[in-house]
């Protein structure tokens, strides 16, 4: 048995971690699975140009116009009574619509995700329904119910209750158009998580409500926040449905988006600044929403549902 003299690497027993054998570096030279540099460049330029032209430019433009007569005029216009009243009304409507849909979203997702029952798929379709209904139609349906010639119109008039062209109508329309946001973020995530955690908590003696509060809610809180965020943005910015129902009485039933339209119809420099300064507030809201959304997706990607469709 001849013995050998061989170089022994000091740590031959432990190979290092697996190398990035299929490194996903796109600018790898002459790779078999990417395009020539010129194709990539053109595609990137087209994509960036498209986003820049259609998305970035309008956003920047809103702020440029809002401040086109200086900061003084900007704040002047925002502190006009009509503007103030529109902001207050929008905040009020949102403060009612979002919690209402939040409660619905939680209830619906609990029933749908934690139980098996017949017609579940149909129920989910119905929840998504408001997304495929034009906002104008959303407004119209309430006019048909509560308007002067509507089904409940005479009764409402007799009892002196005002829904159409008043705050309740605006709230109803807003709830309608933002109806699915929370539910559709929660349902897929809660379905994915199953019922194991809840069953464990119940077997340990927790009550149903405590189980929800301490087990279910922490599991879905980021998706919940995400849904509320989108719901909030849409609630504050809804135009079509609200415009049908509000009657557009400045200082009384005009929300922020309606006030933008009202101001844009007056052809003066100050009215233009008024319109764009109001728009800039909503644009700021959109930016904050996007930043929070991006942050949530980046930080809690695994705890948010993957369905980023139809908002």
């Amino acid at each position: 048995m001849p013995a050998e003299k061989v170089f022994v690497p000091p740590d031959y027993q432990r190979p290092t971690e697996s190398p990035p054998e299929v490194a996903a570096i796109p600018f790898r030279q002459r790779s078999a699975v990417t395009e020539p540099v010129w194709v990539r460049t053109i595609l990137i330029v087209v994509a960036v140009g498209f986003v820049g032209l259609f998305l970035l430019l309008p956003l920047v433009f809103v702020f440029v116009q809002a401040f086109s007569m200086g900061f003084g005029e900007y704040f002047e216009q925002l502190s006009e009574p009509y503007a103030q009243s529109a902001i207050r009304l929008t905040l009020l409507v949102t403060a009612i619509a979002v919690p209402a849909n939040l409660v619905f979203g939680i209830a619906a997702s609990w029933a749908i995700a934690k139980f098996e029952f017949k017609g579940k798929a149909f129920l989910i379709t119905l929840i998504d329904l408001p997304f495929s209904v034009s906002p104008v139609i959303a407004g119209l349906v309430y006019v048909l119910l509560f308007g002067a010639q509507g089904y409940f119109g005479p009764w409402l008039e007799a009892n002196d209750i005002q829904i159409i062209f008043a705050v309740p109508g605006i709230v109803l329309a807003t709830i309608f158009v933002t109806f699915p946001f929370v539910a559709r973020e929660l349902i897929p995530l809660m379905q994915e998580q199953g019922t194991g955690d809840e069953e464990a908590a119940l077997s340990l003696g927790a009550s149903g409500f405590k189980t929800f509060l301490f087990v279910t809610l922490p599991n879905v809180k980021w998706a919940l926040l995400y849904g509320v965020l989108l719901c909030n943005a849409r609630a504050m910015g809804e135009f079509g449905a609200v415009s049908v129902l509000s009657g557009r009485i400045q200082g009384f039933t005009n929300t922020m988006p309606l006030q933008i339209e009202a101001a844009s119809k007056e052809f003066s420099r100050t009215a233009e600044v008024a319109a764009f300064s109001m728009a800039s507030l909503l644009a700021l809201l959109a930016l904050v929403t996007l930043i929070l959304k991006t942050f949530l997706e980046w930080r809690y990607a695994d705890r948010l549902s993957s369905s980023a469709q139809a908002h």
Partner: peptide
């Protein structure tokens, strides 16, 4: 990537006027 969602977040009236 983040900007792509802007139309979901930006009220249509703001987009319209811009």
């Amino acid at each position: 990537d983040a900007m792509v969602d802007l139309p979901f977040a930006l009220p249509t009236a703001v987009a319209g006027i811009a």
